[in-house]
């Protein structure tokens, strides 16, 4: 994960043209500072060392009972954390899944937990890690907000507001400006 960390911080540095020492720790502090600002702007949450940003739920076709939520989780703490459960009051159930292609076949795997290594970010994005939301209690439309509660292994909860929006060219799958794009995942 060191390389991810490096990429994340490097993305941040190049993105803002800030001149800082290339020392990882400093770069990451800068990153944390910047993401806090971005997070406030995007109404993401920042309660503890683990924070969420860019949370969104693609508008699902009408009648479809399975939705997906995507976000980026960052662990700015010094300890390994893990997401162990997800809940949304607007859905009957929520779970963490990973879409994988095995021998050319799409397989969805249920994950009991997702590790968040210290100083690292994990991207939940289309065609990969995602939060599967089953059974919307009411239809979700563009502009709506989905409340997500992510339970961590230390018993704390990260509250996240995910925006319902259309999939499209601007979907975060390709936005690498913050360096969150984990190539090859």
């Amino acid at each position: 994960m060191t390389s991810n960390l490096y990429k994340t911080c490097l993305g941040c540095l190049t993105g803002t043209a800030m001149i800082l020492s290339a020392q990882t720790v400093q770069a990451c502090e800068a990153h944390a500072f910047l993401t806090t600002q971005t997070a406030e702007a995007k109404t993401a949450s920042h309660q503890g060392p683990v924070m969420a940003m860019d949370a969104w739920v693609p508008v699902a076709p009408p009648g479809v009972k399975a939705h997906a939520a995507y976000l980026v989780l960052m662990n700015h703490g010094a300890d390994l954390r893990a997401v162990t459960a997800v809940h949304s009051p607007q859905y009957a159930s929520a779970a963490i899944h990973a879409s994988q292609v095995k021998d050319g076949v799409n397989v969805m795997q249920h994950l009991a937990q997702v590790d968040l290594p210290a100083g690292s970010s994990v991207a939940f994005k289309p065609h990969g890690l995602h939060i599967m939301l089953m059974g919307p209690k009411k239809p979700m439309a563009q502009g709506d907000t989905v409340d997500l509660a992510l339970t961590l292994d230390d018993g704390t909860t990260v509250a996240v507001k995910a925006e319902v929006r259309k999939r499209g060219a601007a979907a975060p799958m390709n936005h690498g400006h913050m360096g969150h794009d984990h190539k090859g995942s």
Binding site: P58, A60, H67, A68, H97, S99, P126, R167, A169
Partner: peptide, 19 residues
């Protein structure tokens, strides 16, 4: 090939085909 209650991959691929 897909199924309508597929939350992640199928809508992703169909949106990809739209593009």
């Amino acid at each position: 090939i897909g199924f309508t209650s597929c939350p992640d991959v199928c809508p992703f691929v169909l949106s990809n085909i739209v593009e």
